[in-house]
Design a protein around this nucleic acid. Structure first.
Lengths: 277, 277
DNA sequence: AGGAGGCATGAAAGTTTCCTTCAGGTCGCT
DNA sequence: AGCGACCTGAAGGAAACTTTCATGCCTCCT
């Protein structure tokens, strides 16, 4: 790659959208080179000529723009029509998922999965909205034959946490990381030697003090009409799903038949008439 | 828009990517028209000429491809490393949200929101994983001062459904649309004159027979390791969130203070020590 | 029904953009 | 310092794009 060709390549790489708007002559001028050089560069980049490079550039710019677009969603306003609400909400939750996936420490997930797969018993603590996430996890784990309990009652949770010992797993779910009702049982479990996991948006929060493993959920800002419950829940559920799938992978031999069996067991609860529309 | 111009426009709309690869002459031939017509069509579509339309087409194609890209995520395999699981799962759920948002009939949502906002009482039926979604909705509605109950017990649900009358709202959540335990109370509510809403992946399912309003959730395929519960739940939660926000908008005067109040009420449940560690 | 007007349409000419060739220059090597 | 290889851009040629204009179709009026 020669010097003037580099200049062209840099210009292209630096501002795909801008260059896509230029003709050969224009790009030659902007880079202080000749049209021939621009064409040669296009060839070097793997295109038959500048025309095709230009098309590719336009495509690239669009792709980048599309990738960034979801990030700029405006807040949901009181007077938004319902169609906008649907779109914005979907976008926000998508963004939330992306953020969570990006911010999740896979080695911590890995460790949590190992602990869960080998656990004698699993206790999950969650209050309010997080309680539903905990129940979701427990439902899933039960399905593949693990012994799991969800606790929404702080007193019972602590009472049960006392029973835990090394080899057991305790999971606390709290967005704020400061929900005492959830931290308390986790602390007890921690002190009794159980492997403790925190699913929280604040990895530096108090809950982390008693957690062997911390799984960080995205802390997307929340607006007036969109209280914490939504983004944190989406985020938490993703983490919970990852845990579940991880465990299902580890225990595939027993999990697969168990999943199939639970499906069978439910079949009769559905109206059996087929194709009745 | 004249006849031959329509042909060109159709070709362009039908296969943006393909047309982007064609020259004026090529597109003229493909559509059985002349180059002049192609240029004229480009003008009509708002571009200075065909060159620019072509660039826009390339950009559009790229955008579409980018949007669809997540859809091609491979299934999660038993031997996938945990990092892949996180990525794939996040993508799938994102796709699921996008599909749901796209497939949701906003007029139905609008109607459901109106009914909810005006309801004397709201009953929500859901079993299994859907039960958690129902609870989530109820939690939210309660927060903004509505009277809502979630029923996971089919017998109690029916018993309560008898109490419903015109002006009340009953919501059934079932992915399959055939969960008898959920359909039954909805039917009773329907027969007692309540406004009935179905949140289901099968708008043609039995549940729709007794639903005044049907909100369709995405029915993404599910793989062995990724049972129905996940995609349907993600989808259902989005719908539920939309309902909630819609209602919050409608009842903003009372909802906003209520949301603030519930937040205040929770504050003391969090460890008050600020900024520790 | 017949004709006039307008308008859509494509062929061909014109213009821009793109590509290729070639001569001059620069850099590195001996 | 001389030679050679290669980069570089100017100019010419090819292709793509645009415009013009004549033809013919359709429509509306009489």
């Amino acid at each position: 790659m020669t010097r003037s060709m580099q200049r062209v390549a840099e210009a292209v790489a630096g501002d795909p959208a801008g260059c896509a708007a230029l003709t050969v002559t224009g790009l030659a001028e902007r880079t202080g080179t000749s049209e021939a050089t621009v064409v040669r560069t296009s060839r070097l980049l793997g295109y038959p000529g500048y025309r095709d490079l230009r098309l590719a550039l336009a495509a690239l710019a669009a792709q980048q723009a599309a990738g960034r677009a979801p990030a700029v969603t405006a807040d949901i306003a009181v007077d938004d029509p319902i169609a906008d609400v649907v779109t914005k909400l979907a976008r926000e939750e998508q963004q939330c998922l992306a953020d969570t996936a990006a911010g999740l420490d896979t080695s911590q997930v890995e460790a949590a999965v190992s602990a869960l797969a080998a656990a004698r018993r699993i206790d999950v603590y969650g209050i309010g909205a997080s309680s539903l996430v905990g129940q979701d996890l427990v439902q899933k784990l039960l399905r593949i034959g693990l012994i799991a309990h969800a606790h929404a009652d702080p007193h019972l949770a602590v009472t049960n946490a006392v029973q835990l010992r090394s080899g057991d797993v305790a999971i606390a779910i709290t967005h704020s990381g400061r929900t005492t009702d959830v931290i308390e049982p986790l602390r007890v479990a921690f002190e009794h030697g159980a492997t403790t996991v925190a699913i929280t948006g604040r990895p530096d929060g108090e809950v982390a003090q008693y957690a062997d493993l911390v799984l960080t959920t995205s802390t997307a800002r929340e607006s007036e009409l969109r209280p914490a419950a939504m983004s944190s829940r989406t985020s938490q559920l993703l983490v919970v799903d990852c845990l579940f799938i991880g465990v299902a992978q580890r225990t595939y031999e027993s999990a697969a038949p168990a999943l199939a069996a639970s499906y069978e067991a439910l079949a009769h609860r559905h109206d059996p008439r087929p194709g009745h529309r």
